[in-house]
Lab assay of single mutants.
Amino acid sequence: KILMCPEHETERINMYCELCRRPVCHLCKLGGNHANHRVTTMSSA
C-alpha cells in the first residue's frame, strides 16, 4: 500500500521524522514543518 502525505496529497510518504515520530514526504522535509528535523528512510524506521 502506498501512503500519501496528508499535507501534500499528491506526494508519497517516503521518510520518517524522528523528532515528531511521524511519516513525512520530501516536501515536508524541504520546506515544511520538518525542514530542520532529523529524518530517516521509511525502511529504516
Results as ranks from 00 to 15, higher is better:
H8A: 00
P6A: 09
E18I: 01
L3P: 07
L19F: 04
L3H: 07
V39I: 06
C25W: 00
L19H: 12
G32I: 04
M15E: 11
H8L: 00
R22V: 11
A35D: 15
P23V: 09
C5S: 01
E9P: 14
E9L: 10
T10S: 09
N36L: 08
K29D: 15
N14W: 05
V24W: 03
H8P: 00
C25D: 02
H37R: 04
A35V: 11
V24A: 06
M4P: 04
Y16P: 08
H37A: 11
P6T: 13
H37E: 10
H34F: 01
V39L: 11
P6N: 07
C5P: 00
H26D: 14
A45N: 02
R22N: 04
C20M: 02
K29W: 07
C5W: 00
H8T: 01
G31W: 02
C25I: 00
V39H: 11
K1H: 04
C28Y: 00
V39F: 08
N36E: 13
E18S: 06
L30A: 15
L27A: 14
H37Y: 03
V24T: 06
H34Y: 02
N33C: 09
N14R: 06
C5R: 00
T40N: 15
H8V: 00
G32R: 07
A45D: 14
H34N: 02
R22S: 14
A35S: 10
G32K: 07
A35K: 09
T40G: 13
E9N: 10
N33T: 14
E7T: 10
T41N: 04
N14D: 07
R12S: 03
T40F: 03
N33F: 07
R38A: 13
C20K: 02
K1V: 04
R21Q: 12
M42A: 15
E11S: 07
L30K: 15
T41K: 12
Y16L: 10
C25T: 01
C20D: 03
M42F: 11
S43L: 06
C5K: 01
K29Y: 11
L3G: 11
C28R: 01
E9V: 10
G32A: 13
C17F: 00
T40E: 10
H37M: 03
E7F: 07
C5I: 00
M4F: 15
H8C: 01
S43Y: 02
H37G: 07
K29Q: 13
E18N: 06
G32H: 04
E11C: 01
H37K: 06
A45L: 06
H8F: 01
M42R: 14
E9S: 14
H34S: 03
L3I: 14
H34W: 01
R22P: 03
N36V: 05
N36I: 05
R22T: 08
L30I: 10
M42Y: 07
P6H: 08
C28Q: 03
E18Y: 03
G31F: 05
V24M: 07
A35T: 09
G31Y: 06
S44E: 15
E11W: 02
S44V: 10
M4E: 06
H26F: 03
N36F: 11
E18L: 05
L27Q: 13
S43K: 07
K1W: 02
V24S: 02
C20T: 02
K29S: 12
L3Q: 11
S44H: 07
H34C: 13
L19V: 13
K29I: 07
H37N: 05
I2L: 08
C20W: 00
C25A: 01
E9A: 10
P23N: 11
S44T: 11
T10M: 10
T41V: 08
N33D: 12
L30G: 14
T40Y: 05
H37Q: 07
R38W: 12
R22D: 05
A35W: 03
C17R: 00
I13R: 07
I2Q: 08
N33M: 11
R22H: 12
H26C: 12
N36W: 03
H26R: 10
L19E: 15
S43C: 07
G31A: 11
V24K: 02
L3A: 12
R21N: 07
L27E: 09
C28G: 01
C25G: 02
M15R: 03
R12Q: 15
H34A: 03
K29C: 09
T41Q: 08
P6F: 05
A45E: 06
T10E: 10
R21E: 15
L27K: 12
S44F: 04
V39A: 14
S43V: 09
P23W: 05
V39T: 14
H8Y: 00
A45K: 04
P23Y: 09
M4V: 09
C5H: 00
